[in-house]
Each structure stands twice: as structure tokens, then as C-alpha cells.
């Protein structure tokens, strides 16, 4: 960790002013990923702007029937917020599938979006990594890549985005509210995270001087037919090999609307609207789910060690959609996968 100045922002405008004034500055809220990376000298901010006390901690209903979630609502509070539990249980479930309760108590909603990949080479400053040091090369391409991307990767970077919550949020068509020196704007969730291309060091389309103020979820929460299934190497407290967020709207056994997103497979939470479209109007049964899975995975490309992910993703998609269709979402405590 390198030395840094510490200051506390008094309000959002103050935060934006402070970060715009210092190119080496970073915001800190929960700190769970940033401090982790600073201790390994991966992140090297010269100034930390503490935004953890800004009044961005409310969950409010919007005029259009959705919810506006303050960027500083802790993950644990969001998962257990009555409105989230009741209307957006997919979000609650995805949050509870990630990290530990201690980390969820600290991590903020906004921070969850900008957490960085857990690719081992990104963390190890002794090895090349284009994301950490642009142009240095990708060690994972010819190295250990069992956990890496099968969709949307580039020759520059095959890392995955580690969030669970974001998989649910992208599935639900959330939007990200940000404020910068020129005022506020909204970013559709699907456009918030980027694919690596040849700029893997840039994870998101958040501007360098912008702050996330809120996440908005639209009215439709799919609270009846949903499931979040996370598959990993141990039964808790591990990042996903594959995770699936599925949500359905059914009428007489026919799919009216579908949402389908994957975690652990790409540089961003991976939502596929084509696969969703393919589900619409189809009977809620395995053949439909399999066809959607095939469509979603049509461009999947394995690395040397992660070919299993493609087949596993298909099976996980089918299972998660099945759970959603039956109205029996995956429990995050009982590890039996029904």
C-alpha cells in the first residue's frame, strides 16, 4: 500500500469536485475490494475520498413503480430490505449468494458494481496483466484459466466480473444513476460494464470523475418466477464458476417474458436478450430452456482449462429456468439444488 491522503466528502457535489481535482484519487465506500487491492499494490491511489457517510442510503419507490436504491446501501441491508425481499427477491438472492455476511455488511451497492476481477494474475504484481498494467500481456491466456471467461473475451484479457448482485440487476433492466462535473446521467445496466477488447484496464463506462449515486430497478420485479443459482468450488464464500439469474413471467405455462443473465462467464454480467426473446411465447419446459441456453452460448469459446464451463452453463441455465418456472427458487442456505 502506498501512502495516500484521506478526506471525507461532505456531499455528492463535494465528492465530484474532490475527485475531479486529483487524478490519483479514488472514492472509498465499503472498501472491501479497494483496500484488498491496495494492500497488494494493485490499486495505488494517492488520495482516498471517503464517501461512506454521504446520504445515499435510502431505498425509495419511484413514480414509475420501481425502486431507487441509494449507492451506499450496504449489500446486506439491501438483501434484507422488505421491498427488495418482496418485489425483487432475485436481487436479494443474488446478493446473499455472494461473499460473507461480514463483507455484505460493509460493501455498498455502488461499490459492488465497480469491484474488480479476481483473476489471480491481476492481483499478482509479479506477473504481466493488461488490466493492471496495460500492454504488459495477459498471463491467463496461456496460464491458469479454469475460472476465466467463455464469452466476450479478447486476446488482451479473459478475466470475469466477480459480482453476483450485478447479474440479477442486469437481468432486471436496472439503470445506474451517476453524477459528474457536468451533472447527472443514467446508464442502462447492460451498458455499465464493458467487454475487455483492447482496453481491459477500463472495466466500466463510469467516467473517471463520476460517482454512482443510485441504482434504479423498474417496476417489473419477477417476484413469482425467478431463481439465482450459483455454482462454485465450495458451497459458500467462493466466487462463481457459473451463476445464473433467471426470471420468467408465465401465463398458462407459456413464457410471456423472460430474463436471463450469467455470472462468472465474461468480463461483465452477461445478459442475452436474444436468448430471452427465444423464450417468449414458448412453453416453460426443458426444451425451450435448452434452446435458449444454446442460443446464449452460441459464441462461447473455451480457454485451455475451462471448456467445462460451456456445458455446465447450459445445464445451469436449464436448471435455473426450471426452478424459476416452478416457482421454487434456489435457497442460498440449503445447498440442495432442486
Amino acid at each position: 500500500m502506498i501512502p495516500f491522503q484521506y478526506t471525507r466528502a461532505n456531499n455528492v457535489a463535494d465528492a465530484v469536485r474532490l475527485i475531479a481535482a486529483n487524478s490519483g484519487a479514488k472514492f472509498i465506500a465499503g472498501g472491501t475490494n479497494l483496500l484488498d487491492l491496495m494492500k497488494d499494490n494493485v490499486e495505488r491511489p494517492t488520495k482516498l475520498i471517503d464517501i461512506s457517510r454521504l446520504p445515499l442510503t435510502s431505498v425509495e419507490e419511484t413514480a414509475s413503480g420501481g425502486l431507487r436504491i441509494g449507492a451506499l446501501v450496504p449489500n446486506a441491508d439491501l438483501a434484507w430490505h422488505p421491498l427488495i425481499e418482496k418485489r425483487y427477491p432475485l436481487v436479494a438472492s443474488a446478493i446473499l449468494a455472494g461473499a460473507s455476511q461480514q463483507l455484505r455488511n460493509m460493501a455498498s451497492t455502488g461499490g459492488n458494481l465497480v469491484q474488480r476481477t479476481r483473476c489471480a494474475y491481476f492481483y499478482d504484481t509479479a506477473t504481466p496483466c493488461n488490466k493492471r498494467q496495460p500492454g504488459s500481456g495477459c498471463s491467463a491466456v496461456n496460464g491458469i484459466n479454469r475460472g476465466h471467461a467463455i464469452l466476450g473475451a479478447s486476446t488482451s484479457c479473459i478475466a470475469t466480473h466477480p459480482s453476483d448482485m450485478c447479474v440479477a440487476l442486469v437481468a432486471l433492466d436496472a439503470t445506474v444513476h451517476v453524477t459528474g462535473p457536468n451533472g447527472g446521467r443514467t446508464i442502462p445496466f447492460a451498458d455499465f460494464h464493458r467487454l475487455p477488447g483492447d482496453t481491459p484496464h477500463i472495466d466500466t463506462n463510469l467516467g473517471p470523475d463520476e460517482i454512482i449515486t443510485a441504482i434504479e430497478v423498474p417496476a417489473k420485479g419477477f417476484a413469482t418466477n425467478y431463481s439465482y443459482l450459483k455454482i462454485r468450488d465450495r458451497l459458500s464464500y467462493a466466487f462463481a464458476l457459473i451463476s445464473v439469474a433467471a426470471a420468467l413471467e408465465l401465463k398458462d405455462g407459456t413464457i410471456q417474458e423472460a430474463r436471463l443473465a450469467l455470472g462468472g462467464v465474461a468480463h461483465k454480467p452477461w445478459r442475452d436478450v436474444a436468448a430471452e426473446a427465444a423464450l417468449r411465447g414458448r412453453p416453460a419446459e426443458e426444451a425451450s430452456f435448452a434452446a435458449a441456453a444454446d442460443l446464449l452460448l452460441r459464441d462461447a469459446r473455451p480457454q485451455a482449462q475451462n471448456g467445462f464451463k460451456i456445458d455446465l452453463a447450459k445445464r445451469a441455465i436449464i436448471r435455473t429456468l426450471t426452478q424459476a418456472a416452478r416457482g421454487t427458487p434456489q435457497s442460498q442456505s440449503n445447498k440442495t439444488i432442486q
Binding site: Y6, T32, L35, D36, S100, Q101, Q102, L103, N105, M106
Partner: peptide, 23 residues
């Protein structure tokens, strides 16, 4: 020292957190 083990868990304002990952 990285929020991976929980040994540093304390209660801050009544909530359990990893004290290694907060300043």
C-alpha cells in the same frame, strides 16, 4: 488481512464486519 477468513470480525455499531478491510 484481505477479508477472506473472518478472524478479524468485530462488531461496529452492532454489525459484524471484517476489521481488516476498513480504515
Amino acid at each position: 488481512d484481505h477479508g477472506q477468513c473472518g478472524a478479524c470480525t468485530v462488531l461496529v455499531d452492532g454489525r459484524r464486519i471484517n476489521s481488516c478491510l476498513t480504515l
